[in-house]
Amino acid sequence: MFKKKQDKFSLLLTDIAKNIDNTADYFVTYKVKDESTLSEFSNKLKEYETKGDQLVHTIIKELNHAFITPIEREDILQLTNSLDDVLDGMEEFSGMMDTYGIYSSDSYIDQFSGEIRSCAKEIMTTIELLSLNKLKDIQAHAIKIKEHEQNCDTIFRKSLKQLFQNEKDPIKVIQYKELYYILEEIADSCQSVANNLETIIMKNA
């Protein structure tokens, strides 16, 4: 497992988690008001996603050259990919908002975003614990991630119900349905991170 002195894999995973945490913070706090701010929002999320891709590429390269890894290669790779999916989802959401020209969120998008922000905080904590080999402490945070994902399931159902019942513009129905679906997928990706962490705990605790 990871030693007390952090190895390159734990450091890289921590960098990815920090990038997700920073992205989620920006994702929630930045306020889109018009075409200019929407473009800035989308471009910034793309920068975060590009940084994440570079970190993933570095981990894969290190895995290919490492003789011994602190945990199984497959587990490192699956965890890395699930972390990357979270970041990709946020970038996809911003890109879709830009494509559709949507300049403001609604209460459901705000609720989704809050849950995703909470997931990112928990992910940051779990990766830090993993790097310190505190496996037994990870479980409680993995459970919290899953609870936030379940909250997103509820928000998703409510958001679609109100959309189909109240929105008369078919174009907006299509647009917002897509946005809600992407947010639900981000939450699912967070749950995949939790699942991968639980696999690592099971194999190494």
Score class of each variant (00 low, 15 high):
residue 2 F to L: 08
residue 3 K to Y: 09
residue 4 K to H: 11
residue 8 K to L: 13
residue 19 N to L: 07
residue 20 I to D: 01
residue 23 T to M: 15
residue 31 K to I: 03
residue 34 D to N: 01
residue 38 L to C: 06
residue 38 L to A: 04
residue 38 L to S: 07
residue 39 S to G: 10
residue 44 K to Y: 14
residue 44 K to F: 15
residue 45 L to G: 05
residue 46 K to N: 06
residue 46 K to H: 12
residue 47 E to D: 02
residue 47 E to C: 04
residue 48 Y to C: 08
residue 49 E to T: 07
residue 56 V to N: 07
residue 62 E to N: 15
residue 64 N to K: 11
residue 65 H to V: 13
residue 65 H to E: 13
residue 66 A to L: 04
residue 67 F to M: 14
residue 69 T to K: 03
residue 70 P to F: 10
residue 73 R to L: 03
residue 75 D to K: 01
residue 77 L to K: 09
residue 77 L to W: 09
residue 78 Q to C: 15
residue 87 L to N: 11
residue 92 E to S: 13
residue 95 G to N: 12
residue 100 Y to D: 04
residue 104 S to T: 12
residue 110 D to Y: 07
residue 112 F to P: 01
residue 113 S to K: 12
residue 121 K to G: 09
residue 123 I to K: 02
residue 124 M to Y: 15
residue 125 T to P: 03
residue 125 T to E: 07
residue 128 E to A: 12
residue 129 L to T: 00
residue 131 S to K: 08
residue 133 N to C: 01
residue 135 L to Q: 02
residue 138 I to F: 03
residue 139 Q to T: 12
residue 140 A to H: 07
residue 147 E to T: 11
residue 148 H to E: 05
residue 153 D to T: 03
residue 156 F to W: 01
residue 156 F to L: 03
residue 157 R to V: 11
residue 163 L to R: 03
residue 167 E to H: 06
residue 168 K to A: 09
residue 168 K to V: 09
residue 172 K to G: 09
residue 175 Q to H: 04
residue 175 Q to E: 14
residue 180 Y to V: 10
residue 181 Y to Q: 13
residue 182 I to N: 05
residue 195 N to E: 13
residue 198 E to D: 08
residue 199 T to Y: 00
residue 201 I to F: 06
residue 202 M to V: 14
residue 203 K to N: 09
